[in-house]
């Protein structure tokens, strides 16, 4: 059974069918790329999966359980964490607190225990601190733990956003254009980071990306969207030769 599965997923904004009939499945430990030209509906898929919008049609299941109608924070707690196309960090607080915030749902001590600094507060805070440092270590961010998130260079902000998403202990990681705005060196480094995440954590990854060489290098399967519809699926090699995909990207005539 697929880890994450959508059936006939669709959403209509006013008269615009932003997404129609999306059947998508993600197996455990799989890396799938979601590609397509601008406005194809890729980010809309993420917003539906994380319940930013309610779908007009169709179903979404995680581990066989429907997650339609759940709140965004509940979906994160159930195991789908995401990053954003335009980085959304907690800019004015420390790097490590950014990560700790995503671990909040795994912490148990009540408000009063925190105010009175009871043993449960000390124990959980220590535990979360070492876990957060460990996670920052994976992304080589330990030395920046105490600096404000906004002071990190761009590439490291992207990494921190991934670290924060992973801090929520997700089963599925959604990455929205992780390579956007990166130079080739940074992109290369990012690919290594994603492979590292994939090796280190028992996790499935669904990623949106424009950079073809990037998705070709990292994804096992690709799904191509255009005007809210799936126009192709397959391995990177198959997609590269697919005439419909070439037409969608280059605007060529359809034979």
């Amino acid at each position: 059974m697929a880890l994450l599965e959508t059936r006939d997923l669709g959403i209509t904004f006013g008269g615009l069918q932003a997404l129609q009939h999306l059947d998508l499945s993600l197996e455990p430990r799989e890396i799938v790329g979601l590609i397509g030209p601008n406005g194809a509906g890729k980010t809309t898929v993420f917003n539906l999966l994380t319940s930013v919008y309610p779908p007009t049609t169709g179903s979404i299941t995680l581990d066989g359980v429907s997650i339609v109608g759940k709140k965004t924070y509940q979906i994160t707690q159930l195991g789908i964490a995401r990053t954003f196309q335009n980085i959304r960090l907690f800019k004015d607080i420390s790097v490590i607190d950014n990560v700790k915030i995503a671990m909040n749902a795994q912490m148990r001590y009540p408000t009063l225990a925190g105010i009175l600094r009871l043993p449960s507060y000390r124990r959980e805070e220590q535990e979360v601190h070492s876990r957060a440092m460990e996670l920052l270590g994976i992304f080589s961010l330990e030395e920046f733990a105490q600096s404000k998130a906004k002071n990190l260079p761009y590439g490291k902000q992207r990494k921190l956003e991934m670290a924060r998403a992973l801090a929520a202990n997700p089963k599925v990681l959604l990455l929205d254009e992780p390579a956007a705005g990166m130079n080739p060196t940074e992109t290369q480094e990012l690919m290594e980071t994603i492979s590292l995440i994939h090796r280190t954590f028992d996790i499935a990854i669904l990623l949106i990306e424009h950079d073809m060489s990037f998705v070709m290098g990292i994804c096992q399967r690709l799904v191509v969207l255009d005007y809210g519809k799936v126009i192709a699926r397959g391995t990177p090699e198959e997609i590269q030769k697919n005439p419909a995909v070439i037409a969608a990207y280059l605007g060529g005539d359809e034979e």
């Binding site: 994380t50 930013v52 709140k71 965004t72 924070y73 994160t76 707690q77 964490a81 995401r82 954003f84 959304r88 960090l89 907690f90 800019k91 004015d92 607080i93 915030i101 995503a102 909040n104 749902a105 924060r164 998403a165 801090a167 929520a168």
Partner: peptide, 10 residues
């Protein structure tokens, strides 16, 4: 800091 990101962080 960012309400949308906070929701997304659980």
């Amino acid at each position: 800091e960012d309400e949308i990101a906070a929701e997304a962080a659980g």
